[in-house]
């Protein structure tokens, strides 16, 4: 299972990657594998604010649907619209092309409350 070292992880299987004030959010390789073939996502509205652990997106397979929780608090500044027409990208590239959205983070300390790659691996 691919768990990149530089990312932060939530218990609910989201990852967060910090780039300046921005945080990219997606789901882990483990999560996409468990969900199996992803057929649809619902993305949040740009401009919408979420607090940490609030449901903000949905990822769906043929026979199931899962909420995605915001790993940190922030405002959505970008969503990955490519996922709407090609949700399989999440299965193919969960950490790169398959990111869900980008948040402008409010409190950087929240990142530290997330798990490291090593801790996440252990939690699986």
């Amino acid at each position: 299972m691919n768990v990149p070292n530089e990312l932060f992880y939530a218990k609910t299987h989201e990852w967060a990657r910090k780039e300046g004030k921005k945080v990219y959010v997606g789901i882990t390789d483990h999560a996409q594998h468990e969900i199996t073939d992803i057929v649809h996502v619902e993305l949040p509205e740009v401009g919408k604010k979420f607090s940490k652990s609030q449901p903000c997106a949905v990822v769906e397979s043929v026979k199931s649907a899962f909420d995605i929780y915001s790993p940190v608090s922030g405002t959505v500044v970008e969503v990955n619209e490519e996922l709407l027409s090609s949700p399989e990208i999440i299965n193919q590239s969960p950490y790169e092309k398959g990111f869900f959205f980008v948040l402008e983070i409010e409190n950087e300390n929240e990142l530290k409350e997330l798990m490291s790659a090593e801790d996440y691996k252990k939690s699986l």
Binding site: E60, K63, A65
Partner: peptide, 8 residues
Amino acid sequence: LQSREQHI
């Protein structure tokens, strides 16, 4: 499109 529906 069944993941919209009640059984899921």
